[in-house]
Write a protein that binds this DNA or RNA. Structure first.
Lengths: 224, 224
DNA sequence: GACGGAACTGAAGAAATCATGAAAACAAAG
DNA sequence: CTTTGTTTTCATGATTTCTTCAGTTCCGTC
Protein backbone atom coordinates (compact mmCIF):
# COMPACT_ATOMS: atom_id res chain seq x y z
CA UNK A 1 0.00 0.00 0.00
CA UNK A 2 1.27 3.47 -0.82
CA UNK A 3 2.55 5.60 2.04
CA UNK A 4 1.95 9.34 2.00
CA UNK A 5 3.63 11.93 4.21
CA UNK A 6 1.47 14.96 4.85
CA UNK A 7 3.04 18.16 6.13
CA UNK A 8 0.46 20.75 7.15
CA UNK A 9 0.41 23.04 10.18
CA UNK A 10 -3.36 23.62 10.39
CA UNK A 11 -4.79 20.79 12.49
CA UNK A 12 -8.27 20.92 10.95
CA UNK A 13 -7.09 20.77 7.37
CA UNK A 14 -4.58 18.09 8.30
CA UNK A 15 -7.27 15.85 9.72
CA UNK A 16 -9.57 16.38 6.82
CA UNK A 17 -6.86 15.52 4.32
CA UNK A 18 -5.73 12.51 6.33
CA UNK A 19 -9.28 11.21 6.47
CA UNK A 20 -9.80 11.64 2.76
CA UNK A 21 -6.58 9.87 1.86
CA UNK A 22 -7.18 7.00 4.24
CA UNK A 23 -10.65 6.55 2.84
CA UNK A 24 -9.02 6.14 -0.52
CA UNK A 25 -7.01 3.22 0.83
CA UNK A 26 -3.72 5.02 1.33
CA UNK A 27 -1.45 5.01 4.36
CA UNK A 28 -0.88 8.47 5.78
CA UNK A 29 1.53 9.89 8.31
CA UNK A 30 1.00 13.57 9.03
CA UNK A 31 3.32 16.19 10.46
CA UNK A 32 2.63 19.69 11.77
CA UNK A 33 6.12 20.95 11.03
CA UNK A 34 9.22 19.98 9.16
CA UNK A 35 11.43 18.71 11.99
CA UNK A 36 9.33 15.66 12.72
CA UNK A 37 8.90 15.15 9.00
CA UNK A 38 12.63 15.00 8.35
CA UNK A 39 13.07 12.69 11.30
CA UNK A 40 10.50 10.31 9.84
CA UNK A 41 12.29 10.34 6.49
CA UNK A 42 15.29 8.70 8.11
CA UNK A 43 13.14 5.80 9.21
CA UNK A 44 11.01 5.22 6.16
CA UNK A 45 10.69 6.88 2.80
CA UNK A 46 7.16 7.66 1.61
CA UNK A 47 5.81 7.13 -1.89
CA UNK A 48 4.51 10.67 -2.04
CA UNK A 49 4.70 13.94 -0.07
CA UNK A 50 1.94 16.49 0.34
CA UNK A 51 3.62 19.69 1.40
CA UNK A 52 2.03 22.90 2.62
CA UNK A 53 3.94 25.92 1.42
CA UNK A 54 3.29 27.98 4.54
CA UNK A 55 4.86 26.32 7.52
CA UNK A 56 6.25 27.58 10.80
CA UNK A 57 10.03 27.38 10.88
CA UNK A 58 11.44 25.98 7.67
CA UNK A 59 8.85 26.79 5.01
CA UNK A 60 7.57 24.47 2.34
CA UNK A 61 9.82 25.76 -0.38
CA UNK A 62 12.88 25.10 1.76
CA UNK A 63 11.63 21.64 2.57
CA UNK A 64 11.13 20.99 -1.11
CA UNK A 65 14.61 22.15 -1.90
CA UNK A 66 16.07 19.94 0.76
CA UNK A 67 14.18 16.93 -0.49
CA UNK A 68 15.44 17.55 -3.99
CA UNK A 69 19.01 18.00 -2.78
CA UNK A 70 19.36 14.58 -1.21
CA UNK A 71 19.77 11.67 -3.56
CA UNK A 72 17.63 9.34 -1.51
CA UNK A 73 14.60 11.63 -1.60
CA UNK A 74 14.95 13.47 -4.87
CA UNK A 75 12.78 11.12 -6.86
CA UNK A 76 9.85 11.12 -4.45
CA UNK A 77 6.80 12.82 -6.00
CA UNK A 78 5.86 16.03 -4.20
CA UNK A 79 2.61 17.96 -4.30
CA UNK A 80 2.76 21.51 -3.02
CA UNK A 81 -0.28 22.90 -1.25
CA UNK A 82 -0.81 26.62 -0.85
CA UNK A 83 -3.27 29.43 -0.27
CA UNK A 84 -1.36 31.62 -2.66
CA UNK A 85 -3.09 32.03 -5.95
CA UNK A 86 -0.91 34.13 -8.19
CA UNK A 87 0.46 32.65 -11.33
CA UNK A 88 3.96 33.61 -10.26
CA UNK A 89 3.71 31.48 -7.14
CA UNK A 90 2.64 28.44 -9.07
CA UNK A 91 5.47 28.87 -11.47
CA UNK A 92 7.90 29.25 -8.61
CA UNK A 93 6.67 26.12 -6.92
CA UNK A 94 6.84 24.03 -10.04
CA UNK A 95 10.21 25.47 -10.99
CA UNK A 96 11.59 24.34 -7.69
CA UNK A 97 10.87 20.77 -8.54
CA UNK A 98 7.38 20.10 -7.24
CA UNK A 99 5.46 17.55 -9.29
CA UNK A 100 2.08 19.11 -8.81
CA UNK A 101 0.50 22.15 -7.24
CA UNK A 102 -2.77 22.45 -5.30
CA UNK A 103 -4.35 25.79 -4.46
CA UNK A 104 -6.55 26.23 -1.40
CA UNK A 105 -9.40 25.93 -1.22
CA UNK A 106 -9.48 22.64 -3.10
CA UNK A 107 -11.84 19.72 -3.01
CA UNK A 108 -10.49 16.67 -1.22
CA UNK A 109 -11.55 14.53 -4.14
CA UNK A 110 -9.30 16.47 -6.43
CA UNK A 111 -6.47 16.08 -3.98
CA UNK A 112 -6.94 12.32 -3.80
CA UNK A 113 -7.13 12.10 -7.57
CA UNK A 114 -3.91 13.98 -8.04
CA UNK A 115 -2.19 11.82 -5.45
CA UNK A 116 -3.30 8.68 -7.17
CA UNK A 117 -2.25 9.99 -10.55
CA UNK A 118 1.24 10.73 -9.31
CA UNK A 119 1.49 7.41 -7.51
CA UNK A 120 0.48 5.61 -10.67
CA UNK A 121 3.17 7.37 -12.62
CA UNK A 122 5.84 6.71 -10.04
CA UNK A 123 4.78 3.14 -9.58
CA UNK A 124 5.20 2.30 -13.22
CA UNK A 125 8.82 3.28 -13.08
CA UNK A 126 9.86 0.86 -10.41
CA UNK A 127 8.41 -2.56 -10.96
CA UNK A 128 7.27 -3.63 -7.53
CA UNK A 129 5.92 -7.10 -6.94
CA UNK A 130 3.72 -7.22 -3.91
CA UNK A 131 1.42 -9.54 -2.07
CA UNK A 132 -0.18 -8.77 1.25
CA UNK A 133 2.52 -7.23 3.44
CA UNK A 134 5.37 -8.47 1.25
CA UNK A 135 6.90 -6.11 -1.27
CA UNK A 136 9.72 -6.85 -3.66
CA UNK A 137 11.29 -3.91 -5.46
CA UNK A 138 13.27 -5.40 -8.28
CA UNK A 139 15.13 -2.22 -9.18
CA UNK A 140 16.29 -1.62 -5.66
CA UNK A 141 16.72 -5.31 -5.27
CA UNK A 142 15.24 -5.16 -1.81
CA UNK A 143 12.37 -6.81 -0.02
CA UNK A 144 10.20 -5.34 2.70
CA UNK A 145 7.57 -6.80 5.00
CA UNK A 146 5.26 -4.20 6.49
CA UNK A 147 7.84 -1.62 5.51
CA UNK A 148 10.67 -3.33 7.39
CA UNK A 149 13.52 -4.28 5.11
CA UNK A 150 14.44 -7.96 5.01
CA UNK A 151 17.90 -9.09 3.98
CA UNK A 152 17.73 -11.98 1.53
CA UNK A 153 20.42 -13.97 -0.20
CA UNK A 154 20.48 -14.32 -3.95
CA UNK A 155 18.62 -17.61 -4.18
CA UNK A 156 16.07 -16.65 -1.56
CA UNK A 157 15.41 -13.47 -3.46
CA UNK A 158 15.04 -15.38 -6.69
CA UNK A 159 12.61 -17.84 -5.17
CA UNK A 160 10.44 -15.13 -3.69
CA UNK A 161 10.46 -13.20 -6.94
CA UNK A 162 9.35 -16.23 -8.94
CA UNK A 163 6.64 -17.04 -6.43
CA UNK A 164 5.36 -13.48 -6.52
CA UNK A 165 5.44 -13.42 -10.31
CA UNK A 166 3.27 -16.50 -10.30
CA UNK A 167 1.17 -15.23 -7.45
CA UNK A 168 -1.85 -17.45 -6.86
CA UNK A 169 -0.63 -20.37 -8.90
CA UNK A 170 1.32 -23.31 -7.55
CA UNK A 171 4.80 -23.81 -8.95
CA UNK A 172 6.75 -27.04 -8.94
CA UNK A 173 10.23 -27.48 -7.55
CA UNK A 174 11.45 -28.09 -11.06
CA UNK A 175 10.05 -24.77 -12.18
CA UNK A 176 11.74 -23.02 -9.31
CA UNK A 177 14.98 -24.79 -10.06
CA UNK A 178 14.77 -23.82 -13.68
CA UNK A 179 13.98 -20.22 -12.92
CA UNK A 180 16.32 -19.52 -10.05
CA UNK A 181 19.16 -21.93 -10.76
CA UNK A 182 18.99 -21.44 -14.49
CA UNK A 183 18.97 -25.05 -15.53
CA UNK A 184 16.42 -27.79 -15.56
CA UNK A 185 17.28 -30.08 -12.74
CA UNK A 186 15.01 -33.04 -12.35
CA UNK A 187 15.80 -35.28 -9.46
CA UNK A 188 15.46 -35.69 -5.78
CA UNK A 189 16.89 -32.80 -3.90
CA UNK A 190 15.78 -31.03 -0.80
CA UNK A 191 17.65 -27.89 -1.82
CA UNK A 192 14.55 -25.94 -2.74
CA UNK A 193 12.87 -26.96 0.49
CA UNK A 194 15.89 -25.73 2.34
CA UNK A 195 15.77 -22.26 0.84
CA UNK A 196 12.04 -22.03 1.27
CA UNK A 197 12.60 -22.76 4.90
CA UNK A 198 15.11 -19.95 5.44
CA UNK A 199 12.96 -17.67 3.32
CA UNK A 200 9.93 -18.30 5.52
CA UNK A 201 12.01 -17.74 8.58
CA UNK A 202 13.35 -14.41 7.37
CA UNK A 203 9.91 -13.21 6.36
CA UNK A 204 8.67 -13.86 9.89
CA UNK A 205 4.90 -13.78 10.21
CA UNK A 206 4.55 -13.23 6.50
CA UNK A 207 6.44 -16.48 5.89
CA UNK A 208 3.18 -18.33 6.35
CA UNK A 209 1.95 -16.73 3.15
CA UNK A 210 4.14 -19.20 1.30
CA UNK A 211 1.95 -22.27 1.20
CA UNK A 212 3.09 -25.81 0.65
CA UNK A 213 1.21 -27.66 -2.07
CA UNK A 214 1.68 -31.30 -1.41
CA UNK A 215 3.00 -33.38 -4.28
CA UNK A 216 3.40 -30.25 -6.38
CA UNK A 217 5.53 -27.57 -4.85
CA UNK A 218 4.76 -24.15 -3.41
CA UNK A 219 2.58 -21.17 -4.02
CA UNK A 220 2.06 -17.72 -2.66
CA UNK A 221 -1.27 -16.00 -2.43
CA UNK A 222 -4.09 -18.39 -2.92
CA UNK A 223 -7.55 -17.64 -1.69
CA UNK A 224 -7.94 -17.20 2.03
CA UNK B 1 20.30 25.20 5.06
CA UNK B 2 21.41 28.28 3.18
CA UNK B 3 23.74 30.71 4.89
CA UNK B 4 23.36 34.42 4.26
CA UNK B 5 25.83 37.17 5.14
CA UNK B 6 24.16 40.49 5.78
CA UNK B 7 26.22 43.70 5.69
CA UNK B 8 24.28 46.72 6.93
CA UNK B 9 25.38 49.57 9.22
CA UNK B 10 21.96 50.59 10.55
CA UNK B 11 21.27 48.42 13.60
CA UNK B 12 17.46 48.65 13.33
CA UNK B 13 17.30 47.69 9.70
CA UNK B 14 19.86 44.96 10.28
CA UNK B 15 17.78 43.36 12.98
CA UNK B 16 14.61 43.58 11.00
CA UNK B 17 16.20 41.94 7.98
CA UNK B 18 17.85 39.27 10.08
CA UNK B 19 14.54 38.44 11.70
CA UNK B 20 12.74 38.18 8.38
CA UNK B 21 15.36 35.94 6.85
CA UNK B 22 15.52 33.67 9.85
CA UNK B 23 11.74 33.38 9.83
CA UNK B 24 12.08 32.13 6.30
CA UNK B 25 14.31 29.33 7.49
CA UNK B 26 17.64 30.81 6.47
CA UNK B 27 20.81 31.08 8.49
CA UNK B 28 21.99 34.64 8.85
CA UNK B 29 25.22 36.22 10.04
CA UNK B 30 25.17 40.02 10.09
CA UNK B 31 27.97 42.57 10.04
CA UNK B 32 27.94 46.32 10.68
CA UNK B 33 31.00 46.99 8.53
CA UNK B 34 33.18 45.33 5.97
CA UNK B 35 36.22 44.38 8.07
CA UNK B 36 34.39 41.80 10.15
CA UNK B 37 32.63 40.61 7.00
CA UNK B 38 35.86 39.88 5.16
CA UNK B 39 37.22 38.15 8.23
CA UNK B 40 34.19 35.87 8.27
CA UNK B 41 34.66 35.04 4.60
CA UNK B 42 37.95 33.37 5.44
CA UNK B 43 36.20 31.05 7.84
CA UNK B 44 33.10 30.12 5.88
CA UNK B 45 31.67 31.15 2.55
CA UNK B 46 27.99 32.10 2.48
CA UNK B 47 25.44 31.05 -0.12
CA UNK B 48 24.37 34.63 -0.61
CA UNK B 49 25.39 38.17 0.42
CA UNK B 50 23.05 41.06 1.16
CA UNK B 51 25.14 44.18 0.83
CA UNK B 52 24.23 47.74 1.77
CA UNK B 53 25.71 50.23 -0.64
CA UNK B 54 26.25 52.92 1.98
CA UNK B 55 28.73 51.70 4.52
CA UNK B 56 31.23 53.44 6.78
CA UNK B 57 34.79 52.85 5.62
CA UNK B 58 34.92 50.71 2.49
CA UNK B 59 31.58 51.29 0.76
CA UNK B 60 29.34 48.65 -0.78
CA UNK B 61 30.52 49.12 -4.31
CA UNK B 62 34.12 48.58 -3.27
CA UNK B 63 33.16 45.47 -1.34
CA UNK B 64 31.33 44.15 -4.38
CA UNK B 65 34.35 44.66 -6.61
CA UNK B 66 36.58 42.89 -4.14
CA UNK B 67 34.23 39.94 -3.92
CA UNK B 68 34.13 39.64 -7.67
CA UNK B 69 37.89 39.88 -7.93
CA UNK B 70 38.58 36.88 -5.73
CA UNK B 71 38.12 33.48 -7.30
CA UNK B 72 36.70 31.93 -4.16
CA UNK B 73 33.93 34.49 -3.82
CA UNK B 74 33.19 35.53 -7.38
CA UNK B 75 30.36 33.09 -7.90
CA UNK B 76 28.48 33.94 -4.71
CA UNK B 77 25.13 35.64 -5.45
CA UNK B 78 25.04 39.22 -4.19
CA UNK B 79 22.06 41.47 -3.62
CA UNK B 80 22.80 45.17 -3.30
CA UNK B 81 20.66 47.22 -0.93
CA UNK B 82 20.46 50.98 -1.21
CA UNK B 83 18.48 54.11 -0.51
CA UNK B 84 19.51 55.60 -3.80
CA UNK B 85 16.75 55.48 -6.30
CA UNK B 86 18.03 56.83 -9.56
CA UNK B 87 18.10 54.61 -12.55
CA UNK B 88 21.80 55.31 -12.96
CA UNK B 89 22.59 53.87 -9.54
CA UNK B 90 20.74 50.66 -10.25
CA UNK B 91 22.54 50.26 -13.52
CA UNK B 92 25.87 50.89 -11.85
CA UNK B 93 25.20 48.31 -9.20
CA UNK B 94 24.08 45.65 -11.61
CA UNK B 95 26.90 46.40 -14.00
CA UNK B 96 29.40 45.91 -11.23
CA UNK B 97 28.32 42.36 -10.89
CA UNK B 98 25.49 42.39 -8.40
CA UNK B 99 22.87 39.75 -9.05
CA UNK B 100 19.93 41.76 -7.80
CA UNK B 101 19.16 45.21 -6.51
CA UNK B 102 16.84 46.30 -3.68
CA UNK B 103 15.81 49.90 -3.11
CA UNK B 104 14.87 51.18 0.34
CA UNK B 105 12.27 51.27 1.53
CA UNK B 106 11.38 47.70 0.57
CA UNK B 107 9.07 45.11 2.02
CA UNK B 108 10.86 42.35 3.86
CA UNK B 109 8.79 39.76 2.04
CA UNK B 110 10.10 40.99 -1.25
CA UNK B 111 13.62 40.82 0.11
CA UNK B 112 13.13 37.27 1.28
CA UNK B 113 11.60 36.25 -2.06
CA UNK B 114 14.48 37.68 -3.99
CA UNK B 115 16.97 35.94 -1.73
CA UNK B 116 15.22 32.64 -2.20
CA UNK B 117 14.97 33.07 -5.93
CA UNK B 118 18.70 33.67 -6.18
CA UNK B 119 19.49 30.76 -3.91
CA UNK B 120 17.33 28.47 -6.01
CA UNK B 121 18.99 29.56 -9.17
CA UNK B 122 22.43 29.13 -7.71
CA UNK B 123 21.52 25.71 -6.47
CA UNK B 124 20.28 24.49 -9.80
CA UNK B 125 23.44 25.55 -11.53
CA UNK B 126 25.64 23.35 -9.44
CA UNK B 127 24.17 19.92 -9.83
CA UNK B 128 24.95 18.45 -6.45
CA UNK B 129 24.36 14.79 -5.82
CA UNK B 130 24.16 14.11 -2.14
CA UNK B 131 23.52 11.24 0.16
CA UNK B 132 23.95 11.37 3.88
CA UNK B 133 27.31 13.02 4.52
CA UNK B 134 28.55 12.49 0.98
CA UNK B 135 28.25 15.35 -1.49
CA UNK B 136 29.32 15.28 -5.10
CA UNK B 137 29.38 18.61 -6.89
CA UNK B 138 29.49 17.73 -10.54
CA UNK B 139 30.06 21.28 -11.74
CA UNK B 140 33.13 21.70 -9.57
CA UNK B 141 34.02 18.07 -9.94
CA UNK B 142 34.72 17.68 -6.27
CA UNK B 143 33.52 15.41 -3.52
CA UNK B 144 33.12 16.21 0.15
CA UNK B 145 32.33 14.11 3.19
CA UNK B 146 31.00 16.10 6.12
CA UNK B 147 32.39 19.16 4.41
CA UNK B 148 35.92 17.75 4.18
CA UNK B 149 37.08 17.53 0.61
CA UNK B 150 38.10 14.11 -0.65
CA UNK B 151 40.51 13.67 -3.54
CA UNK B 152 39.26 11.07 -5.98
CA UNK B 153 40.72 9.74 -9.17
CA UNK B 154 38.74 9.83 -12.38
CA UNK B 155 37.32 6.33 -12.18
CA UNK B 156 36.56 6.55 -8.50
CA UNK B 157 34.68 9.76 -9.15
CA UNK B 158 32.75 8.14 -11.96
CA UNK B 159 31.79 5.18 -9.83
CA UNK B 160 30.58 7.34 -6.97
CA UNK B 161 28.62 9.55 -9.33
CA UNK B 162 26.86 6.61 -10.92
CA UNK B 163 26.07 5.10 -7.56
CA UNK B 164 24.63 8.40 -6.34
CA UNK B 165 22.62 8.86 -9.51
CA UNK B 166 21.07 5.48 -8.90
CA UNK B 167 20.77 6.05 -5.20
CA UNK B 168 18.77 3.30 -3.55
CA UNK B 169 18.93 0.90 -6.45
CA UNK B 170 21.46 -1.85 -6.81
CA UNK B 171 23.70 -1.55 -9.85
CA UNK B 172 25.55 -4.41 -11.44
CA UNK B 173 29.25 -4.42 -12.20
CA UNK B 174 28.37 -4.45 -15.87
CA UNK B 175 26.33 -1.31 -15.47
CA UNK B 176 29.19 0.36 -13.67
CA UNK B 177 31.61 -0.79 -16.34
CA UNK B 178 29.36 0.50 -19.06
CA UNK B 179 28.85 3.83 -17.41
CA UNK B 180 32.33 4.59 -16.14
CA UNK B 181 34.50 2.77 -18.64
CA UNK B 182 32.25 3.52 -21.56
CA UNK B 183 32.06 0.06 -23.05
CA UNK B 184 30.07 -3.00 -22.27
CA UNK B 185 32.46 -5.42 -20.71
CA UNK B 186 30.98 -8.69 -19.63
CA UNK B 187 33.37 -11.06 -18.04
CA UNK B 188 35.23 -11.88 -14.93
CA UNK B 189 37.20 -8.99 -13.62
CA UNK B 190 37.77 -7.73 -10.15
CA UNK B 191 38.58 -4.28 -11.44
CA UNK B 192 35.38 -2.69 -10.24
CA UNK B 193 35.82 -4.29 -6.83
CA UNK B 194 39.26 -2.79 -6.65
CA UNK B 195 38.06 0.72 -7.31
CA UNK B 196 35.18 0.31 -4.91
CA UNK B 197 37.71 -0.67 -2.31
CA UNK B 198 39.86 2.42 -2.75
CA UNK B 199 36.74 4.55 -2.96
CA UNK B 200 35.50 3.21 0.34
CA UNK B 201 38.88 3.79 1.88
CA UNK B 202 39.03 7.40 0.75
CA UNK B 203 35.52 8.11 1.94
CA UNK B 204 36.47 6.89 5.40
CA UNK B 205 33.52 6.30 7.67
CA UNK B 206 31.12 7.16 4.88
CA UNK B 207 32.62 4.37 2.81
CA UNK B 208 30.36 1.96 4.59
CA UNK B 209 27.41 3.63 2.89
CA UNK B 210 28.41 1.76 -0.24
CA UNK B 211 26.82 -1.60 0.27
CA UNK B 212 27.75 -4.70 -1.63
CA UNK B 213 24.81 -6.66 -2.95
CA UNK B 214 26.02 -10.17 -3.28
CA UNK B 215 25.66 -11.69 -6.73
CA UNK B 216 24.44 -8.39 -8.09
CA UNK B 217 26.85 -5.55 -7.54
CA UNK B 218 26.80 -2.51 -5.32
CA UNK B 219 24.40 0.12 -4.14
CA UNK B 220 24.40 3.27 -2.12
CA UNK B 221 21.59 4.40 0.11
CA UNK B 222 19.18 1.67 0.97
CA UNK B 223 16.97 2.06 3.97
CA UNK B 224 18.54 2.25 7.40
C1' DG C 1 -5.04 -45.14 14.89
C1' DA C 2 -1.26 -46.90 12.14
C1' DC C 3 1.26 -46.59 7.91
C1' DG C 4 3.96 -44.53 4.07
C1' DG C 5 5.26 -40.91 1.59
C1' DA C 6 6.16 -36.08 1.60
C1' DA C 7 7.91 -32.04 3.70
C1' DC C 8 10.55 -29.79 7.48
C1' DT C 9 14.61 -29.17 10.41
C1' DG C 10 19.44 -28.67 11.89
C1' DA C 11 24.15 -29.13 11.22
C1' DA C 12 28.29 -29.46 8.64
C1' DG C 13 31.05 -29.74 4.61
C1' DA C 14 31.50 -27.69 -0.14
C1' DA C 15 31.38 -23.95 -3.18
C1' DA C 16 31.05 -19.45 -4.61
C1' DT C 17 31.74 -14.55 -3.99
C1' DC C 18 33.99 -10.68 -2.24
C1' DA C 19 37.91 -8.03 0.14
C1' DT C 20 42.57 -7.34 0.44
C1' DG C 21 47.40 -6.43 -0.56
C1' DA C 22 51.07 -6.44 -3.62
C1' DA C 23 52.81 -5.84 -7.92
C1' DA C 24 52.70 -5.26 -13.00
C1' DA C 25 51.10 -2.37 -16.88
C1' DC C 26 50.03 1.99 -18.28
C1' DA C 27 49.77 7.01 -18.74
C1' DA C 28 50.97 11.70 -17.62
C1' DA C 29 53.92 14.88 -16.30
C1' DG C 30 58.64 16.94 -15.13
C1' DC D 1 64.13 9.43 -19.73
C1' DT D 2 62.86 9.35 -15.22
C1' DT D 3 59.40 10.04 -11.91
C1' DT D 4 54.95 10.05 -10.26
C1' DG D 5 50.44 8.63 -10.09
C1' DT D 6 46.65 5.86 -11.85
C1' DT D 7 44.62 1.70 -13.45
C1' DT D 8 44.52 -3.14 -13.93
C1' DT D 9 45.58 -7.93 -12.86
C1' DC D 10 46.51 -11.68 -9.92
C1' DA D 11 46.75 -14.69 -5.87
C1' DT D 12 45.35 -15.30 -1.24
C1' DG D 13 42.30 -15.45 2.65
C1' DA D 14 37.89 -14.40 4.83
C1' DT D 15 33.15 -14.53 4.66
C1' DT D 16 28.89 -15.70 3.06
C1' DT D 17 25.99 -18.71 0.73
C1' DC D 18 24.72 -23.18 -1.06
C1' DT D 19 24.12 -28.04 -0.89
C1' DT D 20 23.78 -32.44 1.07
C1' DC D 21 22.52 -35.73 4.46
C1' DA D 22 20.14 -37.86 8.17
C1' DG D 23 16.73 -37.57 11.41
C1' DT D 24 12.13 -35.73 12.65
C1' DT D 25 7.62 -34.16 11.93
C1' DC D 26 3.54 -33.67 9.36
C1' DC D 27 -0.35 -35.09 6.39
C1' DG D 28 -3.50 -38.06 3.86
C1' DT D 29 -5.09 -42.70 3.38
C1' DC D 30 -6.27 -47.11 4.57
Amino acid sequence: MALIYLVEDDADIREMETYALKSAGLSVASFAESTAFFAALKTELPDLVLLDIMLPGLDGMQVLKRLRADASTQTIPIIMVTAKTTEADKVRGLDSGADDYLTKPFGVMEMVSRCKALLRRAHRQSAVLAFDSIELDDARHCVTVDGREVELTFKEYGLLKYLLQNCGTAVTRDQLMGSVWGFAFTGETRTVDMHIKTLRKKLGEAGQLIETVRNVGYKIGGQA
